[in-house]
Design a protein around this nucleic acid. Structure first.
Lengths: 188, 188
DNA sequence: TAAAGAATTTACCGATTGGTACAGTCATGC
DNA sequence: GCATGACTGTACCAATCGGTAAATTCTTTA
């Protein structure tokens, strides 16, 4: 593994934090410089196309993480019901029990939405597909699958915003457990 | 009604659009100038504290609208079940069948969150209280009220983000009708 | 109709924006 | 130990940022 790939990867985690906390427009290069400890020279060495490429890298990184840790297990899990339970556990952990926003949601709710519409579309569509398939395998009615998957994925996004706005991270957990119960009771 | 109040009110609707579509940081004064047709001089005449006061005015306007058209009817409606149904109808209409984002959510998901935390908190807390009370009056179990209210309000926010990200406004309506059914079936 | 004040236009400010250029430093492999 | 290329620091750029100031125009009212 070359040094390039390793260091670039280190930076991406910090970039993700900055974008998550300040949004795309709010994440200025000076702020990014400060938080990453990298000067503009280094930043533009790793991301020649600048801020947009930084955000693309972060979104790609997140997409990969979800693919690996959420979507794939939903498909490959032996017992789909357990796989769905695991999804909720992973989600709760990833979003730090409601104290962390979803960067995909942050971008979707921002003016930068158009710039990353492809990434956003793929993220949510993949999640919906993976969850709907798991629901299918656990015996959820066909008419229910897609709609329930949308309700759950949207519910997670909304719960994050709600928890932050109410300054009550626990609201996230409360909604999560209700959504989980909903998936469970849709079995046949 | 003086001309001041009337014209200021006209501007607020356009300001709301700009903030909704571009976010707080993305809504530059030049963009605001362009969309409102008002020069900086006029803008600063109406909103001496600048952009922040413009956003405050918009958020205040939205809060009033929801208080009047959503929260109050939830409390005063003769039959609570019908009042809740009306809420979903009004929400679907306000958010243009999923083609319009919620500015409160947009701000909550942005770096400007801290600046308007009071407004955000009040909006969501008021909504939760009003809905929980209506659920109470329609006989929803006490243990359910608050949690169901949170699920519904969060669900609406999330559905807006989902619909925009999937580029499928109808996803909003699908989630809405499920949430409505949930409220209905929680009656006693 | 003239005074008062509301509203607008215009020019301007310093600071910051994202981005570029490039010389210099550093580690690594031959 | 030297050449190569990855990496960094610094200086710089035009454009735009949010905001200010003041002269001017338009409306309202007495």
């Amino acid at each position: 593994m070359s040094r390039v790939v390793a260091e670039r990867q280190d930076v991406i985690a910090t970039l993700a934090e900055v974008f998550r906390e300040h949004g795309y427009d709010g994440a200025s290069l000076s702020l990014i410089t400060e938080k990453t400890g990298l000067g503009k020279g280094s930043l533009y060495h790793f991301f020649p196309r600048g801020k947009e490429e930084m955000a693309e890298a972060v979104l790609g990184d997140i997409a990969t993480w979800f693919q690996t840790n959420i979507f794939d297990p939903l498909r490959s899990g032996e017992t789909p019901a357990a796989a769905i339970d695991d999804m909720f556990t992973a989600v709760d952990s990833y979003f730090r029990q409601g104290r962390r926003l979803c960067l995909m949601g942050v971008i979707a709710a921002s003016g930068a939405h158009d710039r990353f519409s492809v990434e956003l579309n793929r993220y949510f569509a993949d999640w919906r597909t993976a969850l709907a398939e798991a629901l299918d395998r656990q015996g959820t009615a066909e008419s229910e699958r897609q709609a329930l998957a949308e309700e759950v994925i949207g519910g997670i996004q909304g719960a994050l915003i709600l928890a932050r706005s109410l300054d009550d991270p626990q609201a996230f957990g409360r909604v999560l457990s209700r959504l989980k119960a909903r998936c469970r009771s849709s079995q046949n």
